[in-house]
Amino acid sequence: MATTTQNPAPAATTAEPKGKRGIKSTGGVMRVFSHGFLALWAAMIILPLLWMILTSLKSNDEVFANPLGLPSSLHFENFGRAWEKAGIGGFFVNTIVVVGGGVFFTMALGSMAAYVLARYQFRGNRFFFYLFVSGMMFPVFLALVPLHSIMDSVGLLDTKYGLIMVYVAYSLPFTVFFLTSFFKTLPHGVAEAAMIDGAGHYRLFFQVMLPMAKPGIISIAIFNVIGQWNQFLLPLVLMPSEENNVLTQGIANIAVKERYDPDFTALMASMVIAMVPILIAYTIFQRQIQAGMTAGALK
């Protein structure tokens, strides 16, 4: 290939066959090369996860005898220990309550705000839009300490209600940003027809626009479920007592305890338990998740 570019004059006459052969051979080398690297990275992702799952099924003695091997028999009691002794069950329930409430109200409030910002012209429309969007740029850690005192002063520190409200507030910027552009793409004709038929603003929103916006709302809801399920810094500061901990916190605590009271297989079992819902959601919705999450970076 390099020679053809260096000698353009003779190459011009033989460009066709020579070029084709050149492409084919580099394509071959390239294919081996690229498959090699891709397979290497794939192994770097699969191996740790596989190792985690295998370890969660071994006995502690077996882990130390043969860290890489397959389990000789399946020790499901690790999961029992994780669920009962380490309290994963409670953390799991807390997480479901908080994320369920958080995502529901995020979507309700977010779609309301996004709808009026997208489809109504009023004074301050742009101001409110940019007010929300600016929230995507602030680093959360800067707000943590004052947020702790605000929640404390209104008695919502260490409560699920409080954490739900905080999750909603911190999920609004992206939700509003994304749904505003989504509501803008919906056709105006349907809304006009509904208004002519005598629908008020509220009925128009709940019975016409909201059902039409379903695809956008679903992909952002999935995005928020993952984001809120994985949240760590906010609960770390706002949910100090152990019975209120969410999964991420609970598992972080188990990992810290593991240093003093080693139960490696139960730790790995806790990890598997916490990872399963995400894995299922990801497998089912991976297309929407990838679309929703990469859309978040496109601003």
Partner: peptide
Amino acid sequence: RANWFVASFLVLPVALYLILVLSPFAQA
């Protein structure tokens, strides 16, 4: 009527956002 509608839809999300997101940043 439209203005009332807009206001009723914005008041909760904006209030929550101001109190829990923007004010802590300012207080920091």
